[in-house]
Design a protein around this nucleic acid. Structure first.
Length: 283
DNA sequence: TCCTCCCTGTTC
DNA sequence: GAACAGGGAGGA
């Protein structure tokens, strides 16, 4: 399930394949995979991919008009893909056929003229494609309200954002509080910081909230270094699995012994999400 | 602030 | 054949 480290890995691995490629045609195979606010896919034609980046869990392709003589009334500046649970993005040769779960195919032309394709596959069809101007992005509440990047937030700002009496884990999953954290990295970060997931968000001492932010940054950094976590579906743009799942301390380990103290790990549900923690190590 | 729903493949 | 996986929208 792609969270920040996985999306970062996809952005890094897809970039060399499609940098400076120009859209020639696009085919939407599943209507619901297109975000309601999206411009038509046809507006991509003639646009060049000049950058691939990540914002939270969103994959962001930055576009520019390939030819100065293209005079469209409104040209899209971004192609945004949210992989959600099972989305995959990868490039293929020009004549590659769609798979069972291919939701969108983009025809591209490399700078040397070679045609290739960019596929968006998504088994559970939760993922979304959004072709947009910056004006459309501003009008998209999710984008507009997206919290700061974990690597860009400072300790004071982070502490300020942990308000309210809801469970700390709920706050970490809330993308308006901090961007990019999902179920895996919430549990792993809370364990590393030795803080219980059910604690009220506003109950942390200054020392604890600093420890939590440090843990988040450290966990995410280590995961990116291992190309993310592959649980069920996730593969990067080159079809490679990540390796961070091999170092999970708590996620998916309910009932198993804690790797630090040996006591049995507890499994519960917070915000409807499976949550695993060590009742002995975490306070 | 919490719950339900969306969706499909895998596991029990 | 039910339970489960879960990010985010939308409603209670």
């Amino acid at each position: 399930m792609p969270e920040l480290p996985e999306v970062e890995t996809v952005a890094r691995t897809i970039y060399p394949h499609i940098h400076n490629c120009v859209f020639t045609n696009s085919e939407l195979l599943k209507l619901s995979s297109l975000h309601p606010l999206s411009m038509p896919l046809s507006t991509l034609t003639g646009m060049r991919i000049c950058k691939v980046s990540r914002r939270g869990k969103l994959l962001v392709f930055t576009l520019e008009a390939a030819d100065s003589y293209i005079k469209k009334i409104e040209v899209p500046q971004f192609l945004i893909i949210h992989l959600r649970m099972t989305g995959r993005v990868f490039s293929t040769k020009a004549n590659e056929a769609s798979g069972n779960h291919t939701r969108c195919k983009f025809g591209l032309k490399k700078p040397d003229g070679t045609p290739i394709q960019l596929f968006f596959d998504d088994t559970r069809t939760f993922g979304k494609i959004l072709v947009a101007t910056s004006k459309i992005l501003d009008a998209w509440p999710f984008w507009h309200d997206l919290g700061p990047e974990p690597f860009e937030i400072n300790t004071q700002e982070f502490a300020k954002r942990l308000k309210g009496t809801r469970a700390l884990k709920s706050a970490l999953l809330d993308q308006t509080v901090i961007a990019g954290i999902g179920n895996i990295y919430a549990d792993e970060s809370l364990f590393q910081a030795r803080i219980l997931p059910g604690r009220a968000a506003n109950s942390l001492s200054g020392k604890e909230s600093n420890a939590l932010l440090s843990a988040i940054k450290d966990v995410l950094t280590r995961s990116i270094a291992q190309c993310g976590s592959s649980i069920r579906d996730y593969l990067d743009a080159d079809g490679n699995a990540g390796a961070f799942q091999n170092t999970f301390m708590v996620y998916g380990r309910g009932g198993q012994p804690c790797k630090v103290c040996g006591n049995s790990l507890c499994k519960t549900r917070i915000s409807g999400r499976a949550t695993v923690f060590c009742p002995h190590c975490q306070k």
